[in-house]
Nucleic acid binder design. Structure first.
Length: 725
DNA sequence: GCATCGGATTTTTTT
DNA sequence: AATCCGATGC
């Protein structure tokens, strides 16, 4: 096996770098995954490091799986003992093993978004805090940020009233989590970092074990992750990190690309290796990407280059609105597929999830299949959530969110009044809802039975009885067996079957979940529930389907496609309005576009709409400011407008295309809002708007003396005075 | 206890 | 436009 074959000198240098800290700054498409996987293989095969002594962490399960697979291919041997996984899964494993040091049991569950938000709500209600003023979502965001920064409830800053509220809720939220024997996503990182920080014995154990620590997407690490990595690598100091500050797009979730600089400070002896050779894109695409990213301040410039040649120009397409944009995308893809292109070669990317709807509609209307990354399509389904809540409840009866979700699903005549009584009783008895339910299972023998009306008592008792039955099975049945038993006991299928098509769809999803559960007969329910809690959007991507992919720019990171459409390039969408007043956030918007552009291998379409709809209202919009940063010579206007409804309904599997409309030449706007221009008669004025109408550029100019004038750019002899960017 | 209606609110990005 | 929440009436 020659691990060095097919690697360029920089990649080889990274691969064979000796011991000590190594920082690999890897541009997009520069083969960083390859470097990481070959490095692991190299450590094992050439340096004789045992897999047991290696830790490699990624951000997504998909990346982890890919790495595992490639290392196995390279070595052709068993990697027993190798720790390779996502940050969250790695932390979960460590915390389960070291639970003796911690205030929760090793059987803890991981709460999902719903569970987390529910706990915040409960805490808010307990303190009688107005949920309108303090949105659970926003309060949770503050708590999450604190955890990522390793700030404990007691340490939460107290500079204004909101802080004070958050601190109180944070404190209570943590208590509620612990009383449910549950952790949230951030806890996994925070508890691990704190454990390693505070327990020298544990730190010693793991940092001695992990002779080599390797990290993917290092620029996306937050404080907690950085600290725990530092501790894990404390003994051997062999830490090999790969990242690209320009692709840091998770600042809002605590990621701090300055960790790259921090790394250089904390490990001054680090070898720094730069990977600039790009193996993915054409030079035109790389040039456009660099033109966009070079405008960000405080960065180390990279010059990406390729040997693939310049390639096709970027196609810039102006469309009327989101609908037309979607049609354009679908028609363009359909036409290329007609000419022999693989449907799976195409990807459509956008800034916000909401933008996917119109695109999906266009695909559906044309009867063309597509796949959508993320948005929790499967796990967000009501029926899937229901079944998982049942399993969670059986596994961990203290999980009140799950209990409340399923106690009356399907309907069991347990309504709000009964639940309120149950809660009051639980508080008075200083116990949990489930404990009372389980006791009520005895029926009249229960001391609580008399606390309810006859109907309510009976309904609760019945449910308690069901729960007791399932509890008894949990250690004897695999996840699928338990699931089937529950489905059967509650007659879930007839609950879903309301005679509608949707009911059948829903049952299909249940069957899909059964298939998933079947894979866990060896590993058991703990792993089943944990893995589901930690699936990422990218993980749900079905790579076998040869159809176009729709996804947010965030979800696109790490992926590549021959042809990429980036939709919705308007100011306010990308960059997003919510970032306007924060320079750091604006820099990140730019990086987001950079990530999007660099996903493209051969061809790139950039689309912007003249009108955008938000909240159901439509208003005019300006092209994204980033578009003007891309040099004109890299771009051509779309010269085939394939707009209009995909006119024929076609069989999806054939991928026949809609008939193309007659080609119409498309102009590019020469003038943009904010430009200063001079008119021969009216003097200086400012461009307020410019649009293409009937093959003509119409510019709105405001003149001090004359007021607003609409001019045809080709006729009015306008002179550019000063471009105000 | 449950279905229905109207109004408010939402959209930034996710492990 | 779509979803969530609370109030209302049966």
């Amino acid at each position: 096996m020659n691990l060095l074959a097919n690697l360029n000198p920089q990649q080889q240098q990274a691969l064979t770098a000796g011991t000590g800290p190594v920082l690999v700054l890897a541009g997009p498409g520069s083969g960083k995954t390859r470097v990481l996987t070959n490095r692991i293989a190299y450590l094992i095969s050439h340096l004789g490091v045992r897999p047991y002594n290696i830790l490699a962490v990624t951000f997504t399960n998909k990346a982890a799986r890919q790495m595992q697979q490639r290392v196995e291919e390279l070595l052709g041997e068993n990697l027993r003992g190798l720790s390779l996984g996502t940050f969250h899964a790695t932390c979960a494993r460590l915390l389960r093993r070291e639970a003796d040091y911690l205030p929760f049991k090793s059987s803890f569950v991981i709460f999902n978004d719903d569970d987390q938000r529910n706990l915040v709500k409960r805490a808010l209600r307990e303190f009688d805090i107005d949920e309108k003023r303090y949105r659970p979502h926003s309060v949770h965001g503050s708590i999450s940020r604190a955890k990522n920064e390793l700030i404990l409830p007691a340490e939460y800053p107290n500079t204004n009233y909101r802080d004070e509220v958050v601190a109180r809720v944070y404190t209570r939220y943590q208590e509620l989590l612990l009383s449910s024997n549950a952790l949230d996503f951030d806890d996994l990182l925070m508890w691990t970092a704190r454990l390693l920080e505070e327990q020298p014995a544990v730190r010693e154990k793991y940092s001695r074990r992990y002779e080599h620590v390797l990290v993917d997407e290092f620029q996306d690490t937050n404080m907690a992750q950085y600290l725990l990595l530092k501790h894990l690598a404390a003994f051997h100091r062999n830490i090999f990190v790969v990242g690209d500050s320009d692709q840091s797009i998770y600042r809002w979730r605590g990621a701090d690309h300055r960790n790259v600089q921090r790394f250089e400070q904390d490990f001054p002896d680090a070898q720094v290796i730069l990977l600039e050779h790009n193996y993915r894109s054409t030079q035109i695409i790389l040039d456009a990407a660099m033109a966009v990213i070079d405008r960000n301040p405080h960065r180390t410039r990279k010059s990406l280059f390729t040997e693939r040649g310049s390639g096709d120009k970027i196609i810039l397409q102006e469309v009327f609105d989101g609908r037309e944009e979607a049609s354009f995308v679908v028609n363009s893809i359909a036409q290329e597929v007609l000419q022999g292109a693989e449907p799976g070669n195409f990807a459509v990317m956008y800034r916000t999830n909401a933008q996917s709807r119109q695109l999906e509609e266009a695909f559906l209307q044309a009867n063309l299949p597509y796949k959508l990354v993320g948005a929790q399509r499967f796990y967000g389904r009501r029926e899937v959530k229901d079944i998982l809540a049942y399993l969670h409840l059986v596994y961990n009866p203290e999980n009140e969110t799950s209990l409340l979700r399923v106690i009356n699903t399907p309907r069991r005549k347990i309504g709000n009044k009964t639940l309120e009584d149950l809660r009051t009783l639980a508080i008075n008895e200083n116990t949990s809802l489930s404990a009372i339910l389980l006791d009520l299972a005895q029926g009249e023998g229960s001391e609580f039975y008399g606390s309810f009306t006859r109907g309510a008592g009976l309904a609760l008792s019945r449910f308690g009885d069901l729960l007791t039955g399932w509890r008894a099975l949990i250690n004897d049945l695999p996840p699928l067996g338990l699931m089937d038993r529950i489905l059967n006991d509650v007659d879930y299928q007839s609950y879903l079957d309301d005679g509608s098509e949707e009911g059948i769809d829903r049952w299909d999803n249940v069957l899909e979940l059964r298939r998933l559960a079947a894979e866990y007969s060896d590993r058991g329910i703990t792993d089943f529930l944990q893995d589901i809690a930690l699936v990422s959007d990218q993980d749900t991507l079905d790579e076998t389907a040869n159809v176009p992919t729709l996804m947010t720019l965030h979800a696109a990171k790490g992926l590549e496609f021959p042809v990429v459409f980036i939709a919705g390039l308007q100011d306010g969408t990308l960059p997003h309005v919510r970032s306007f007043d924060d320079p750091e956030a604006m820099a990140e918007e730019r990086r987001l576009l950079y990530v999007g552009i660099t996903r493209a291998k051969d061809r790139l379409y950039l689309l912007h709409a003249l009108n955008r709809s938000t909240y159901g209202y439509t208003e005019p919009s300006d092209p994204s400011r980033y578009l003007s940063d891309i040099p004109d010579e890299l771009v051509e206007g779309g010269n085939q407008v394939l707009i209009g409804k995909p006119s024929r309904t076609v069989r999806a599997d054939l991928w026949e295309a809609a008939s193309p409309a007659s080609p119409v030449p498309v102009l590019q706007s020469e003038y943009k809002a904010g430009m200063q221009v001079r008119h021969p008669a009216w003097g200086e004025g400012m461009v307020l708007n410019s649009k293409i109408q009937d093959g003509e550029e119409i510019v709105d100019v405001f003149f001090e003396d004359k007021g607003l004038k609409k001019l045809a750019a080709s006729l009015a002899k306008l002179e550019l005075v000063n471009t105000n960017q």
